[in-house]
Design a protein around this nucleic acid. Structure first.
Lengths: 223, 223
DNA sequence: ACCCGGCAAATTGTATACAATCTTTTCCTT
DNA sequence: AAGGAAAAGATTGTATACAATTTGCCGGGT
């Protein structure tokens, strides 16, 4: 009954390579040669080429005809700019939902993530081991809102705007307990605003929330 | 001295195919077979496949592993949703510029487009022949603002959000003279707001401007 | 030493052959 | 006739061969 997940080498290589790039496996500027990658990934050049083309379109690689692909460098400005874009996208998401009212399903989902956040904060210091749980919770919160908009392009762009090394995993390693609390407060206010159909407030708070993350990153990121 | 524009069959095919799709050359749902396209485009399947992959990532095609690509259908909702996303993106663009103040270069460029718009409106009825000029002017106005932000992701997303059949060429065929005047007024207010460093006003008016275009499309588009 | 042709090697671009998968048809069973 | 395995055909996926282009190197001329 369960639909079998079909895939191809090309798709697998694309995601594997994307992961490597997002984890910062390759230094910016590094030239990615097809034969070298093909050997490393144990496939022929064909799927490699398709993967490279896609990742270049995603902005992770730079491309020049007849000269191949190289790993893109993201300046701090690039990253903050991406956050600013994401802030208005996710802000719009909140606004749309606040305007039309939340579904019971979204209400439940978000309440669950808020409870998870609450528990994590109560449990003590939020040590390294709990980063992953927080990350999960945070991702679930933001994604649930986006999906509820039923605006495909909005979801696509918001996701894509996180497709940046460093940013991708959420930079929670720099968060102090106070910062986790602040993020949690933001989540609560955003939820409350959407629940009470306050589009302006929901939008504004989400922008505030996202740009605060950018601010923390800006303070700590050296390059 | 002039740099030679290098390209490849793959890139050429991608753009050619994109153009066909944006012009609505293929009915939604149509299956695009690689061999058929290869024959039509007079190239082998290799560049065709790379083009299809990219266009699928752009949202113009749908893809299923081992089953190939088909032309995507855009509902009216899809299109209006895309406009809404574009409105906040371009709105953000205006806001950013209003915050930091306009460069002389942008001021000149925008004033030139405003003058062109003025001339077109004065020249009479804006018949079919003048649609193209209006389109050019409009495109120049919006693009100049976007580029001035120096926010690469913003530019990319805003451009991509126009990559939809029907939308792409601007639906000026449905504009009455009054509607052209309204669009022109919007442009003027947006310019004025940015010039006087009124971020909120600039942002708001750009959103209004974009969503008004969506409204006109909504009124006239039947499908 | 510097500047350049120009040849050789390396790398990307394209076509094609082959493999895997999906689709359609055939034909047997009930 | 309905259903369904199984083979045949069509289509996509991958590997590889070849072509085009770029890059690195060598040597001659100034």
């Amino acid at each position: 009954m369960t639909e079998v997940l079909k895939s191809t080498r090309s798709l697998n290589v694309t995601e594997a390579l994307r992961e490597l790039l997002l984890q910062g496996e390759f230094d910016p500027g590094t030239r990615l040669q097809e034969t070298w990658l093909a050997e490393r990934m144990q496939v022929s050049r064909t799927p490699i080429r398709e993967a490279l083309r896609v990742l270049a379109k995603d902005g992770l690689l730079e491309y020049a005809p007849n000269r191949g692909y190289s790993v893109r460098h993201f300046s701090l400005d690039d990253i903050v700019s991406a956050f600013r874009v994401r802030s208005v996208l996710e802000g719009l998401g909140c606004r749309l939902i606040a305007e039309r009212g939340m579904s019971d399903e979204l209400t439940n989902t978000l309440q669950a993530t808020l409870q998870t956040g609450e528990n994590l904060l109560q449990s003590g210091q939020l040590e390294r081991g709990e980063f992953d749980e927080w990350r999960e919770m945070n991702k679930a919160f933001h994604l649930a809102i986006l999906l509820e908009t039923h605006n495909e392009l909005l979801v696509r762009f918001a996701k894509q705007s996180r497709n940046i090394p460093i940013v991708f995993n959420g930079s929670f390693r720099w968060y102090s307990l106070r910062e986790f609390h602040r993020a949690h407060d933001h989540h609560q206010v955003i939820f409350d605003a959407m629940k009470n159909q306050q589009p302006e407030r929901a939008d504004f708070m989400m922008q505030e929330h996202v740009m605060h993350a950018a601010l923390i990153l800006k303070k700590n990121y050296k390059d």
